[in-house]
């Protein structure tokens, strides 16, 4: 299978004016400006196959949005190449733009004062969607997201979550093959996040679309993405599936067991995360897992012992803690 998204040493550098704080430095800056070259994205390469849903992770400022913007044709790369559906995004060919969509959780493109239905009509005109195709797809999306009673209300009267649902409907009406989703669930409550997640999964299944998604909510990533790409300080740090990520970055494992005698000092084995009646959950260093497990089994009367990878939030925390020097 040929990949639909392909990045070869893609890089974006910014010249950022830099000066010290204070009036004197500001005045000096009028004549001679100091610039600093910031490598927002530093030679990253990866390939994505058709129909894949890929989680694109990294802490704030890692270069996720910059990469998405280069892939959707908004930014010209400083060096390297990007290819999406065989197009060079920065050329912004109409045939390319017709097949992609970009959703940003912190921006909206629907008319604020009008019902979403009016904005949908505008999308139809922009993408030249045939009338009957437009209508059936619009109604299909409205049904899946259960927003039939909201589409006639002015967008300004909708809640954040309701508005996001509308944004997503509007962004998918032209049946894009590639979805760039930049924090689509930002600021939404758990139920709403779940609903949007389900919808993205459904769209991916029905239309075989490829999705590249950034999110700070690990639940989004766990539910949707078989594959994870992590970037940090502009560099590619990891590309693989979730369990591999935990394997590579987590320093800890979680051991759960049931203890008959609760008067035992467990601190000699490791850090107790929680106790629920007789059930104990402990966090132990990864390399000591097997030693501690056998000691627990030998020394104490434990039952139902399980060893699990650390929760994804913990893994991500340790990934994000990686220092810049270590990446370079």
């Amino acid at each position: 299978m040929t990949s639909v998204i392909s990045l070869q040493k893609l890089a974006k550098h910014y010249q950022v004016p830099e000066r010290e704080a204070g009036l004197k430095a500001a005045a000096k800056g009028l004549f001679k400006r100091q610039y600093k070259n910031v490598k927002a994205v530093d030679e990253i390469s990866f390939e994505i196959q058709p129909g894949e849903v890929v989680g694109f992770l990294g802490p704030n400022g890692a270069g996720k949005t910059t990469t998405l913007k280069m892939l959707s044709g908004l930014l010209h790369p400083t060096s390297g190449t990007a290819s999406v559906l065989g197009f060079e995004p920065a050329r912004r060919s109409h045939d390319f733009l017709r097949q992609i969509t970009l959703v940003m959780g912190n921006r909206n493109q629907l008319s604020w004062d009008l019902p979403a239905l009016d904005s949908f009509d505008l999308q139809r005109a922009i993408y030249s969607i045939p009338a009957n195709e437009f209508k059936s797809r619009r109604d299909e999306f409205i049904e899946i997201l259960e927003v039939g009673d909201l589409v006639q209300k002015p967008v300004r009267n909708l809640s954040l979550g309701e508005r996001m649902k509308m944004e997503i409907v509007g962004a998918l009406l032209h049946k894009p093959k590639i979805l760039f989703l930049d924090e689509p669930t930002l600021g939404l409550d758990v139920t709403m996040q779940k609903r949007i997640r389900t919808f993205i999964a459904e769209y991916n299944k029905r239309y075989g679309a490829t999705v590249l998604l950034t999110s700070h909510y690990m639940a989004d990533v766990e539910a949707l993405c078989k594959r994870i790409i992590v970037i940090h300080h502009g560099k590619l740090l990891f590309d693989g599936n979730l369990s591999q990520l935990a394997e590579k970055f987590s320093a800890f494992k979680t051991i759960g067991f049931t203890l008959d005698n609760s008067n035992v000092d467990l601190s000699q084995f490791g850090e107790v995360v929680s106790t629920d009646g007789a059930r104990v959950v402990m966090r132990v260093p990864k390399e000591k897992t097997s030693a501690i497990t056998s000691r627990l089994l030998n020394d104490l009367a434990v039952e139902d012992l399980t060893v699990e990878a650390a929760p994804i939030e913990d893994v991500i925390e340790s990934v994000f803690a990686v220092k810049k020097e270590a990446v370079e």
């Binding site: 913007k69 044709g73 908004l74 912004r92 733009l97 969509t101 940003m104 493109q109 922009i126 993408y127």
Partner: peptide
């Protein structure tokens, strides 16, 4: 920096 949506549409950006 919020011109993004106008630029991801398959129409002449200046017209849009």
């Amino acid at each position: 920096g919020t011109l993004d949506y106008a630029l991801t549409k398959p129409a002449d950006a200046q017209l849009l």
